[in-house]
Design a protein around this nucleic acid. Sequence first.
DNA 1: TTGTAAGCGTTATCAC
DNA 2: GTGATAACGCTTACAA
Lengths: 347, 347
Amino acid sequence: MADLLSVAKLAGVSRATAARAFSQPELLRSETRRRVLEAARRLAFRPNRVAQQLRTRSTRILGVLVPSLDNPVFAEQLQAMETAARQAGYSLLITTTGYDASKEAEIVEEMLRQRVDGLILTVAEADSNDVLDKLGKESVPCLLVYNQPANADTPSISVDNRAAMADATTHLLDLGHRRIGMIAGPVLQSDRARLRYEGYCQAMRAHRLPPLPLIEMPRHTHADLAVLEPHLYGSERLTALLCTNDMLAISLMGDLQRAGFSIPADISVVGFDGIALGALLNPSLCSVVQPRAAIGQAAVNTLLAMIKGESPTRERLSHALRQGDSVGPPTPGSAAPFPSTSPTQRR
Amino acid sequence: MADLLSVAKLAGVSRATAARAFSQPELLRSETRRRVLEAARRLAFRPNRVAQQLRTRSTRILGVLVPSLDNPVFAEQLQAMETAARQAGYSLLITTTGYDASKEAEIVEEMLRQRVDGLILTVAEADSNDVLDKLGKESVPCLLVYNQPANADTPSISVDNRAAMADATTHLLDLGHRRIGMIAGPVLQSDRARLRYEGYCQAMRAHRLPPLPLIEMPRHTHADLAVLEPHLYGSERLTALLCTNDMLAISLMGDLQRAGFSIPADISVVGFDGIALGALLNPSLCSVVQPRAAIGQAAVNTLLAMIKGESPTRERLSHALRQGDSVGPPTPGSAAPFPSTSPTQRR
DNA sequence: TTGTAAGCGTTATCAC
DNA sequence: GTGATAACGCTTACAA
């Protein structure tokens, strides 16, 4: 591939002049500029970003790390980030960790070697995280997304997870629900899940109700009815379920319906994230909406500001409760269906 | 940040020796190697990939271009690609185009400047595509995914879209359906949609039935009931609908149910892609499964092989029809609900 | 307005 | 085994 020097030669100018035709064209006499550009065209010259990056010590690449792409909440955020980044002339190096801390470390190290200009991370656990501690000592701007760390060491962008889940819980309480449960993915892997559970507890206590223990699912995005079964039948059966994310809620609804439950008549279901899909389903999913696109955009813009040297901020974006047909008042007379012998059986 | 030269100095060796401690450690005397690594540790040395890339003329970065992340089919494929790439020591530069051809061109140009080692593209339109023509003249290995170009200029990995949709159509025909419609997103933007429509037509004709015109939706991932309404009522109403992708099918099911239709009693719905989510819903979505993870993995591995100089292949991966409760035999007696005054009305 | 020349941090080719 | 030294392709003072 042709380089700047060959372009310069063909145009009969020095390498510096050829370079300027691209970086500061206004400095050149228009005739010179024309000759250079013409030469570049004839040689199919294409500036080498790698060389530029080495020389300028800036890659204009942002490293992005998310737990997974299986959950649309991340995909929707990435979509917004990619657009915002490209608009500012930056590219995204995107990676997934599967909530694995050792993978997080590995990937961050690789990104630092690649000399990314900044990092946007969604980690499993923002508090007491080795990777973040290490990054604190580095000079690379770094921003957390969705994570809401207790200590203020790393700037972050998220909603107020506790208040958000408290709001959702209060909504159910106001409808008359009393036996409200909450389910989460592998909870040890997610600081957000814990905050959301705290919000639930807080709201329950505010209504003088004892919070129930968190029901933990083996996977982040699939419910497992077997785990839930003890809470679905009998006089103490739950009339409403809060889920730490929408995928969990959606799969739960499907499973419940297959097990004979009617939603919301027999049981109400609330999600968290507000992914677009939820509103399309029937019944539509009631969910705490995180402004995913706004979060993604804010993340990129904040990080770019940090790269320019501005001081980092910790942003709390506001959440909203999206109403949906998956929630209704508890129906006292509604008889829970008999537990089948294998309620989670599937094709 | 410390560089190799400062490491070399601290270790009391030449720069070349310091470099070898990382690239070919076995060449060094173990004592020398130890001294270099110790020095590197003390200086927190981190190899500069950009310099390596410039010198070796290889970035170990793959450029990936997909239409959108809103559709989980792409997210699921990316997930697999990211894992496969990382395993081979490659990173992914991921971008989205929103089915916009000019954006495709822009992004590919930027990736070539970045000197990616290869490109994995899912374009809107694989036939008569300027970008692909241009890439054909470049020396960068390039691979299409999901696209199934008519001409064999660019290697590609996909299912046989025509046969796949024909299979789905035949399934409906075998169940007794006769008035089967097909809906798609903006069809001009997707070569796959056209092939799938051909498959539908082929299967219909094989049963001596006239294929119906393709029903085109304004968006790729949201159905619009208003457009469909003429086909839902009266004696000629459709008893089954094929969708070019699962998101379209899922949103359609929700809308139909809200409009009073029962699925599959009143109307059967079939999707395409087989995204994981579809199986979780109730009714579960019957869909043509594209092996998304296998496609992603095959894409990376094939591209890496091409980068090593092996000759490109055009792979057809096999599809499968996933049964689902969204499909049943047509019910002759089933009365279509009266059209509401505004069947698409939503909160 | 244009040219000269010194890097950016590696790897690779020789020597020794 | 180890060390000099020349690239890789570009940017950018500084000179002219």
